[in-house]
Design a protein around this nucleic acid. Structure first.
Length: 559
RNA sequence: GCCCGCGUAGCUCAGUGGAUAGAGCGUCCGCCUCCGGAGCGGAAGGCCGAAGGUUCGAAUCCUUUCGCGGGCACCA
């Protein structure tokens, strides 16, 4: 019996009681799903619900009386061992070991599919994340979105959604011009321009541009007239930077389905078409030689310039076209992950969405994540390219490896600022909870090996009623929560829930391991208890592997 | 000034109205005669920033307030 089937049983009991008039409620008053949760205290049973406290008053009954009646009906359900009413009206439910343990078989047999669900079935989602400017390597701030975004994509896919990962590549505009100027200056041995980029990577890329031109038999770009030279460095430099970013992300385990170039929106006329569309809808006006979008009609603080008075498209013009492009590619849900420093965009982006006739927060969803704070010796360090204190995605991976990096970035809520202490990270890797979880997985693999050596085989027997140790019912309860954790993480867009869940599951497993032996001692005879425990061991292994997979973290057989 | 996020154990952080507020790391005490001790058991450590309110019940929701971070362009 799973929490879902228990929830269904509760719902059925409520429906019956309403139908026969015991509860003076309208069927519409009943929630579609009755929420059950694992009680904090083990003595409170396997599952608990507060439904009696929610509905009692509505039915004109004392919550406890309501609970008593519901308990009576639920106790008759097969698989339910005991139902107690506690406190103000909690229903504490204990399952028969045999009923609870069936989940173990379900999990093993479902394999990699265990935990997949339909919470997001039928949704076609475009998830944009990272989208760092190609003016330098991805630094530690951007890495957070790489880890969280990719995990979110995996989780939403597990929840049944069709997801495209997308990276928006800002290869147009002033920042890129400054990047090109910086490359040119470095190539000619000059100082970086005002507001330019001065890191060591700039001269490295400049050298590569020069070398690339030589290989291709083109003239040395340094010798061209200024504007041609700058364009040569721009075109080649952006490509090189792009390749580097892509390679770094790939090494981090993150591959995008689409790398979308902003330039293409301008070149293809998509920007003009988007503006024409809005003009036809009456959302556009001209003022002070600029073209404006009336975003204040849709809740924005002020109207936004989309074509500047110098005739150039403002940044948001490309956003209009990009959003429209995504929608026209068939995505009914466009999700964009942005850092807190871009929070100011939300209002205008939602207004833009509404201006097209779409529904803000439904067709367009913007997730704001707080920034990463870099610490050294416990003190915050301001990252500066000149001071050499920039920490890139590659630095992080070199220091701690992909698993530890991804896990530590994905395990906390993006609503919270994240402190990353480099010194701590580089020397004390065992302080990362990822190893606690991975070790649990390695341990399940080891137990399985030992069991196999001792001649314990799953196929020879499974008797769920034998899983009656407290540690086993706790572990089974933990396993049974996994599908709902995945669904919830997907719906709330919160991958960290999966990580926290895995830590809890690993804890339950370690405790079980300590108390319940799987492989027989010495010449002890192999019994169904050993076999059934091997099922439980393997079910845990499967869930740990599935969960780590959603985070893009490996599940090692040995450590 | 206005908008958003966050103030929970020594540190880093979970906890989308429920029962005695949790984990990892750090500190202290135990456990290798049998599945790997990267583990387990136990202890210490909290006025959940503060004050009001909502209700059977608030770390969680509302208001106010203090502190920290971020944002308020014809930059991208």
């Amino acid at each position: 019996m799973t929490p879902a089937s228990l929830s269904d049983a509760l719902h059925a009991a409520l429906t019956d009681a309403v139908a026969d008039g015991t509860f003076a409620l309208d069927p519409a008053d009943l929630p579609t799903t009755v929420h059950v949760e694992r009680p904090r205290q083990r003595e409170h049973g396997d599952w608990a619900t507060n439904i009696a406290m929610q509905l009692g008053k509505k039915a004109g009954m004392a919550p406890r009386a309501f609970a008593e009646e519901l308990a009576r009906r639920l106790a008759a359900v097969p698989g339910v061992s005991a139902v107690d009413v506690a406190g103000p009206g909690f229903l504490n439910i204990t399952l028969l070991a045999s009923a609870a343990g069936e989940l173990v078989r379900t999990a093993v047999e479902a394999g990699a599919a265990f935990g997949r669900g339909d919470a997001l079935a039928g949704e076609s989602i475009n998830l944009e994340f990272v989208s760092a400017n190609p003016t330098g390597p991805i630094h530690i701030g951007g890495v957070r979105w790489a880890a969280v975004g990719d995990s979110l994509a995996r989780i939403m896919q597990a929840a049944g959604a069709k997801v495209a990962r997308e990276y928006y590549f800002n290869d147009h505009g002033g920042q890129i011009d400054r990047f090109a100027q910086s490359l040119l200056a470095a190539a000619r041995g000059q100082d970086a321009p005002e507001d330019g980029y001065g890191g060591a990577y700039i001269s490295e890329i400049a050298d590569q541009v020069i070398a690339g031109a030589a290989t291709a038999g083109r003239p040395d770009p340094r010798t061209l007239p200024d504007d041609e030279a700058q364009e040569a460095f721009r075109a080649a430099g952006v490509d090189l930077m792009f390749a580097e970013i892509k390679a770094s992300l790939h090494a981090f385990g993150v591959d995008f389905d689409v790398y979308f170039h902003e330039n293409s929106l301008h070149d293809s006329g998509a920007v003009d078409r988007a503006i024409a569309r809005l003009r036809a809808l009456g959302r556009i006006y001209e003022k002070d030689a600029a073209t404006w979008l009336r975003t204040t009609d849709f809740g924005d603080d002020k109207d936004r310039v989309i074509i500047k008075s110098d005739g150039e498209a403002a940044y948001i013009a490309a956003d209009l076209a990009y959003y429209l492009d995504k929608r026209e590619r068939g995505f009914d849900r466009v999700i964009i992950m942005l850092g807190a420093d871009h929070h100011g965009y939300v209002g205008r982006m939602m207004a833009m969405c509404a201006a097209f006739g779409d529904t803000p927060w439904t067709n367009l969803e913007i997730l704001i994540g707080q920034m990463v704070n870099l610490l050294k010796d416990g003190q915050p360090v301001r990252m500066s390219k000149r001071a050499g204190t920039v920490v890139t995605i590659d630095d992080l991976v070199d220091a701690v490896g992909v698993d530890a990096a991804r896990y530590s970035l994905a395990r906390s809520s993006t609503d919270s600022m994240l402190d990353i202490d480099l010194d701590l990270l580089t020397k004390a890797t065992n302080e990362n909870p990822v190893f606690y979880v991975q070790y649990a997985h390695a341990r399940t693999a080891n137990v399985a090996r030992n069991a196999a050596d001792a001649g314990v085989r799953r196929a020879d027997g499974f008797d769920a009623s034998l899983l009656d140790h407290v540690a086993e019912s706790v572990l089974i309860g933990a396993l049974s929560e996994y599908p709902r954790v995945v669904a919830q993480a997907a719906e709330l867009r919160e991958p960290h829930r999966v990580a926290r869940y895995l830590e809890m599951l690993a804890g339950s497993y370690h405790k079980w391991y300590d108390q319940c032996r799987v492989a027989p001692f010495g010449d002890e005879e192999v019994t169904d208890l050993h076999r059934t425990r091997l099922w439980l061991n393997d079910a845990t292994r499967q869930v740990l592997a599935n969960g780590l997979g959603l985070l893009g973290v490996s599940a090692p057989e040995r450590m």
